[in-house]
């Protein structure tokens, strides 16, 4: 059972409130929640088709908020970026892989037009 607060937080990845961060961290023990969070993160990243400066900034903030919730312990950053890199905007990918401190080869997968197709990844 996922706490309602944690489920609600999944809809606010674009602007998490401080209590959302706490709710997500507490819910990470649940495999079901981790899958739902992974889906939400991917959907959020894919949905930004034309990022402005704040969107790119937001990617870095989200990476660090997820780090505080131990998300990257369950989903290794390199695997995550490899799984979704071809589906997100190239600038979003650059911001994501930079924030995750991944080597340069992970920054060249992104697309430059509107994304299409279904995410191809597997939740931890």
């Amino acid at each position: 059972m996922i706490a309602p607060e944690a489920s609600e937080a999944l809809h606010r990845l674009h602007y998490l409130r401080p209590e959302d961060e706490d709710s997500i961290a507490e819910a990470m023990v649940s495999r079901k929640f981790r899958r739902a969070l992974t889906d939400a993160v991917v959907n959020y990243l894919v949905s930004i088709a034309s990022p402005d400066g704040v969107d790119l900034d937001r990617v870095s903030v989200l990476v660090h908020q997820l780090n505080a919730a131990q998300f990257w312990n369950y989903y290794p950053p390199a695997e995550f970026v490899t799984a979704i890199g071809s589906q997100i905007h190239s600038e979003m990918l650059f911001a994501l892989s930079s924030a995750l401190k991944l080597p340069a080869q992970y920054r060249v997968l992104g697309i430059t037009s509107d994304p299409s197709g279904q995410p191809q990844y597997s939740a931890a």
Binding site: P18, L56, D57, R58, V59, S60, V61, H64, Q65, A95, A99
Partner: peptide
């Protein structure tokens, strides 16, 4: 709360 939630100036 005051946070360092800025990708450009916080981390």
């Amino acid at each position: 709360m005051i946070t360092n939630a800025s990708g450009r100036y916080g981390y």
